[in-house]
Protein backbone atom coordinates (compact mmCIF):
# COMPACT_ATOMS: atom_id res chain seq x y z
CA UNK A 1 0.00 0.00 0.00
CA UNK A 2 2.80 2.43 0.88
CA UNK A 3 4.53 1.71 -2.41
CA UNK A 4 1.25 2.30 -4.22
CA UNK A 5 0.70 5.63 -2.53
CA UNK A 6 3.96 6.74 -4.16
CA UNK A 7 1.93 6.89 -7.37
CA UNK A 8 0.59 10.28 -6.26
CA UNK A 9 3.63 11.68 -8.07
CA UNK A 10 1.94 10.87 -11.37
CA UNK A 11 -1.09 12.81 -10.07
CA UNK A 12 -3.58 10.16 -11.23
CA UNK A 13 -3.82 8.68 -7.73
CA UNK A 14 -5.35 11.82 -6.28
CA UNK A 15 -5.88 11.96 -2.52
CA UNK A 16 -8.31 14.87 -2.74
CA UNK A 17 -9.21 17.46 -5.41
CA UNK A 18 -8.28 19.97 -2.67
CA UNK A 19 -4.75 18.58 -2.29
CA UNK A 20 -1.71 20.86 -2.64
CA UNK A 21 0.94 18.35 -3.61
CA UNK A 22 2.95 19.47 -6.66
CA UNK A 23 6.04 18.45 -8.61
CA UNK A 24 9.01 20.54 -7.39
CA UNK A 25 9.32 22.36 -10.74
CA UNK A 26 5.80 23.77 -10.34
CA UNK A 27 6.34 25.20 -6.85
CA UNK A 28 7.08 28.84 -6.06
CA UNK A 29 6.44 30.12 -9.59
CA UNK A 30 6.35 33.80 -8.54
CA UNK A 31 9.93 33.66 -7.25
CA UNK A 32 11.06 31.72 -10.34
CA UNK A 33 9.37 34.20 -12.69
CA UNK A 34 10.75 37.29 -10.93
CA UNK A 35 14.29 35.90 -11.15
CA UNK A 36 13.75 35.39 -14.88
CA UNK A 37 12.20 38.84 -15.35
CA UNK A 38 15.14 40.61 -13.67
CA UNK A 39 17.47 39.13 -16.28
CA UNK A 40 15.31 40.24 -19.19
CA UNK A 41 15.95 43.55 -20.93
CA UNK A 42 12.87 45.67 -21.39
CA UNK A 43 11.13 44.94 -24.66
CA UNK A 44 10.02 48.49 -25.49
CA UNK A 45 12.08 51.60 -26.13
CA UNK A 46 13.17 54.41 -23.76
CA UNK A 47 11.84 54.06 -20.22
CA UNK A 48 8.58 52.37 -21.22
CA UNK A 49 7.26 49.25 -19.46
CA UNK A 50 4.68 47.40 -21.54
CA UNK A 51 2.65 44.49 -20.17
CA UNK A 52 -0.52 42.54 -20.85
CA UNK A 53 -3.20 42.76 -18.18
CA UNK A 54 -6.06 40.27 -18.08
CA UNK A 55 -8.30 38.81 -15.37
CA UNK A 56 -10.17 35.71 -14.40
CA UNK A 57 -8.92 32.68 -16.35
CA UNK A 58 -11.27 30.54 -14.22
CA UNK A 59 -12.65 27.54 -16.15
CA UNK A 60 -11.91 29.18 -19.54
CA UNK A 61 -9.28 26.75 -20.81
CA UNK A 62 -10.24 26.88 -24.49
CA UNK A 63 -10.13 30.68 -24.30
CA UNK A 64 -6.81 30.62 -22.42
CA UNK A 65 -5.20 28.78 -25.33
CA UNK A 66 -6.52 31.41 -27.76
CA UNK A 67 -5.30 34.15 -25.41
CA UNK A 68 -1.78 32.68 -25.33
CA UNK A 69 -1.71 32.42 -29.12
CA UNK A 70 -2.75 36.06 -29.42
CA UNK A 71 -0.26 37.40 -26.85
CA UNK A 72 2.54 35.42 -28.49
CA UNK A 73 1.89 37.37 -31.71
CA UNK A 74 2.37 40.72 -29.93
CA UNK A 75 5.69 42.51 -30.08
CA UNK A 76 7.48 44.42 -27.33
CA UNK A 77 5.68 42.90 -24.32
CA UNK A 78 7.64 42.62 -21.06
CA UNK A 79 5.31 40.30 -19.16
CA UNK A 80 1.70 39.19 -18.67
CA UNK A 81 -0.20 39.89 -15.46
CA UNK A 82 -3.25 37.79 -14.53
CA UNK A 83 -5.50 39.66 -12.08
CA UNK A 84 -6.71 36.72 -10.02
CA UNK A 85 -9.35 33.97 -10.21
CA UNK A 86 -6.88 31.72 -11.92
CA UNK A 87 -9.07 28.82 -10.78
CA UNK A 88 -12.85 28.61 -10.40
CA UNK A 89 -13.23 26.03 -7.62
CA UNK A 90 -9.86 26.50 -5.89
CA UNK A 91 -8.76 23.01 -6.97
CA UNK A 92 -5.15 22.01 -7.66
CA UNK A 93 -5.85 20.57 -11.11
CA UNK A 94 -7.47 23.82 -12.23
CA UNK A 95 -4.36 25.81 -11.27
CA UNK A 96 -2.21 23.31 -13.14
CA UNK A 97 -4.44 23.36 -16.24
CA UNK A 98 -4.09 27.15 -16.38
CA UNK A 99 -0.35 27.08 -15.70
CA UNK A 100 0.23 24.46 -18.41
CA UNK A 101 -1.31 26.90 -20.89
CA UNK A 102 0.17 30.16 -19.59
CA UNK A 103 3.66 28.70 -19.50
CA UNK A 104 3.40 28.54 -23.31
CA UNK A 105 3.61 32.35 -23.29
CA UNK A 106 6.84 33.67 -24.77
CA UNK A 107 7.09 36.18 -21.91
CA UNK A 108 6.89 35.47 -18.16
CA UNK A 109 3.54 35.74 -16.42
CA UNK A 110 2.69 36.86 -12.88
CA UNK A 111 -0.50 36.65 -10.84
CA UNK A 112 -2.36 38.02 -7.86
CA UNK A 113 -4.74 35.84 -5.85
CA UNK A 114 -8.50 36.01 -6.54
CA UNK A 115 -11.52 35.12 -4.41
CA UNK A 116 -12.15 31.86 -6.29
CA UNK A 117 -8.50 30.93 -5.68
CA UNK A 118 -9.24 31.02 -1.93
CA UNK A 119 -12.15 28.56 -2.02
CA UNK A 120 -11.63 25.27 -0.17
CA UNK A 121 -7.87 24.78 0.18
CA UNK A 122 -7.12 27.23 -2.63
CA UNK A 123 -5.09 29.53 -0.42
CA UNK A 124 -2.62 26.74 0.40
CA UNK A 125 -2.60 25.71 -3.29
CA UNK A 126 -1.92 29.27 -4.49
CA UNK A 127 0.88 29.65 -1.93
CA UNK A 128 2.36 26.35 -3.03
CA UNK A 129 2.19 26.91 -6.80
CA UNK A 130 2.79 30.69 -6.94
CA UNK A 131 3.95 31.96 -3.53
CA UNK A 132 3.04 34.84 -1.19
CA UNK A 133 -0.43 36.42 -1.39
CA UNK A 134 1.12 39.90 -0.96
CA UNK A 135 4.34 40.68 -2.83
CA UNK A 136 6.10 43.43 -4.75
CA UNK A 137 8.57 43.61 -7.60
CA UNK A 138 10.48 46.34 -9.39
CA UNK A 139 10.77 46.40 -13.14
CA UNK A 140 11.64 49.18 -15.54
CA UNK A 141 11.60 51.89 -12.90
CA UNK A 142 8.19 50.80 -11.66
CA UNK A 143 7.24 49.26 -8.33
CA UNK A 144 4.42 46.75 -8.75
CA UNK A 145 2.54 46.08 -5.51
CA UNK A 146 0.34 42.96 -5.65
CA UNK A 147 -1.98 42.14 -2.78
CA UNK A 148 -4.88 40.01 -1.62
CA UNK A 149 -8.03 42.15 -1.40
CA UNK A 150 -10.53 39.25 -1.23
CA UNK A 151 -11.97 40.30 2.14
CA UNK A 152 -15.11 38.20 1.88
CA UNK A 153 -13.09 34.98 1.74
CA UNK A 154 -11.84 35.76 5.26
CA UNK A 155 -15.32 36.63 6.54
CA UNK A 156 -14.31 40.33 6.42
CA UNK A 157 -13.14 41.30 9.92
CA UNK A 158 -10.75 44.11 8.81
CA UNK A 159 -7.83 41.71 8.20
CA UNK A 160 -7.64 41.57 4.39
CA UNK A 161 -6.30 43.59 2.58
CA UNK A 162 -3.30 44.25 4.79
CA UNK A 163 -3.47 48.06 4.66
CA UNK A 164 -0.43 48.58 6.94
CA UNK A 165 1.68 46.49 4.54
CA UNK A 166 0.30 48.40 1.53
CA UNK A 167 1.04 51.77 3.15
CA UNK A 168 4.60 50.67 3.88
CA UNK A 169 5.12 49.49 0.30
CA UNK A 170 3.73 52.74 -1.11
CA UNK A 171 5.98 54.82 1.15
CA UNK A 172 9.12 52.91 0.27
CA UNK A 173 9.42 53.45 -3.46
CA UNK A 174 13.19 54.00 -3.42
CA UNK A 175 14.67 53.28 -6.82
CA UNK A 176 11.30 53.55 -8.60
CA UNK A 177 9.89 56.45 -10.57
CA UNK A 178 6.33 55.22 -10.23
CA UNK A 179 4.13 52.65 -8.52
CA UNK A 180 1.21 50.44 -9.60
CA UNK A 181 -1.12 48.52 -7.27
CA UNK A 182 -2.64 45.26 -8.54
CA UNK A 183 -5.37 43.32 -6.76
CA UNK A 184 -8.30 41.11 -7.67
CA UNK A 185 -11.29 42.74 -5.96
CA UNK A 186 -11.45 46.54 -6.41
CA UNK A 187 -12.45 48.67 -3.39
CA UNK A 188 -15.64 49.64 -5.24
CA UNK A 189 -16.91 46.04 -5.05
CA UNK A 190 -19.12 44.51 -2.37
CA UNK A 191 -16.60 41.68 -1.89
CA UNK A 192 -14.05 44.21 -0.61
CA UNK A 193 -14.11 44.56 3.19
CA UNK A 194 -16.20 47.72 3.71
CA UNK A 195 -14.40 48.49 6.98
CA UNK A 196 -11.11 48.89 5.11
CA UNK A 197 -12.24 51.06 2.19
CA UNK A 198 -11.36 54.42 3.89
CA UNK A 199 -7.82 53.41 4.97
CA UNK A 200 -7.12 51.52 1.73
CA UNK A 201 -8.10 54.38 -0.54
CA UNK A 202 -6.29 56.88 1.74
CA UNK A 203 -3.09 54.85 1.44
CA UNK A 204 -3.34 55.03 -2.37
CA UNK A 205 -4.15 58.73 -2.28
CA UNK A 206 -1.06 59.35 -0.17
CA UNK A 207 1.36 58.05 -2.81
CA UNK A 208 2.31 60.73 -5.34
CA UNK A 209 4.07 58.16 -7.55
CA UNK A 210 1.00 55.95 -7.95
CA UNK A 211 -0.03 55.62 -11.60
CA UNK A 212 -3.25 53.68 -10.96
CA UNK A 213 -4.92 50.71 -9.27
CA UNK A 214 -5.61 47.63 -11.45
CA UNK A 215 -8.17 44.86 -10.71
CA UNK A 216 -10.13 42.01 -12.23
CA UNK A 217 -13.16 40.34 -10.63
CA UNK A 218 -15.88 42.30 -12.46
CA UNK A 219 -15.03 40.65 -15.83
CA UNK A 220 -15.29 43.92 -17.76
CA UNK A 221 -13.42 47.11 -18.47
CA UNK A 222 -14.14 50.01 -16.15
CA UNK A 223 -12.06 53.14 -15.61
CA UNK A 224 -12.57 56.14 -13.40
CA UNK A 225 -11.85 57.93 -10.18
CA UNK A 226 -14.75 56.59 -8.08
CA UNK A 227 -13.52 58.17 -4.84
CA UNK A 228 -13.07 61.59 -6.53
CA UNK A 229 -9.58 61.88 -5.10
CA UNK A 230 -7.43 61.86 -8.22
CA UNK A 231 -6.67 58.11 -7.96
CA UNK A 232 -7.51 56.15 -11.12
CA UNK A 233 -9.00 52.64 -10.79
CA UNK A 234 -9.12 50.31 -13.79
CA UNK A 235 -10.67 46.85 -14.14
CA UNK A 236 -10.07 44.42 -16.98
CA UNK A 237 -11.82 41.67 -18.91
CA UNK A 238 -12.15 38.00 -18.00
CA UNK A 239 -10.90 35.40 -20.48
CA UNK A 240 -14.49 34.71 -21.51
CA UNK A 241 -14.71 38.20 -23.03
CA UNK A 242 -11.96 37.41 -25.57
CA UNK A 243 -10.32 40.73 -24.77
CA UNK A 244 -7.27 41.89 -22.89
CA UNK A 245 -5.40 45.10 -22.23
CA UNK A 246 -1.87 46.12 -23.11
CA UNK A 247 -0.67 48.77 -20.69
CA UNK A 248 2.31 51.00 -21.40
CA UNK A 249 3.87 53.10 -18.62
CA UNK A 250 6.45 55.81 -19.10
CA UNK A 251 7.57 59.15 -17.72
CA UNK A 252 6.32 59.96 -14.29
CA UNK A 253 2.70 58.82 -14.39
CA UNK A 254 2.03 58.51 -18.10
CA UNK A 255 0.17 55.50 -19.42
CA UNK A 256 -1.53 54.18 -22.50
CA UNK A 257 -4.22 51.51 -22.54
CA UNK A 258 -4.73 49.35 -25.64
CA UNK A 259 -7.53 46.80 -25.98
CA UNK A 260 -6.95 43.63 -27.98
CA UNK A 261 -9.79 41.40 -29.20
CA UNK A 262 -8.82 37.84 -30.08
CA UNK A 263 -10.25 34.39 -30.77
CA UNK A 264 -12.53 33.07 -33.50
CA UNK A 265 -14.73 36.19 -33.64
CA UNK A 266 -11.88 38.70 -33.67
Amino acid sequence: MLALTGLVGCSLVEYSPNQTHLPTAERGLTTQTLALLQQMPRAATADTVRFVFVGDTQRFYDETEQFVASVNRQRAIDFVFVGGDISDFGLLREFRWVHQRLQQLRVPYLTVVGNHDLVGNGRAIYQSIYGPLNYTFQYGGTKFICLDTNGREYGFGAQVPDVAWLRQQLQDTTGSQRAVVLSHVPPTDEDFDPALIPTYTAALRGCSRLVFHLSGHVHRYTAGQPFRDGVTYLTTYSLAKHRYHIISLWGQRQFRLETVTYGPDA
Binding site: V13, R59, Y61, D62, E94
Partner: peptide, 17 residues
Protein backbone atom coordinates in the same frame (compact mmCIF):
# COMPACT_ATOMS: atom_id res chain seq x y z
CA UNK B 1 -14.66 21.71 -16.65
CA UNK B 2 -14.19 19.10 -19.38
CA UNK B 3 -17.66 19.53 -20.90
CA UNK B 4 -17.11 23.28 -21.27
CA UNK B 5 -13.55 22.94 -22.62
CA UNK B 6 -13.65 20.03 -25.01
CA UNK B 7 -10.77 21.38 -27.08
CA UNK B 8 -8.39 22.26 -24.29
CA UNK B 9 -9.05 19.37 -21.90
CA UNK B 10 -9.01 15.63 -22.54
CA UNK B 11 -10.73 12.82 -20.64
CA UNK B 12 -7.32 11.88 -19.25
CA UNK B 13 -7.06 15.30 -17.60
CA UNK B 14 -10.09 14.68 -15.42
CA UNK B 15 -9.47 11.05 -14.42
CA UNK B 16 -8.43 9.84 -10.99
CA UNK B 17 -7.20 6.38 -10.07
Amino acid sequence: SYVQNRKALSVGDILTL
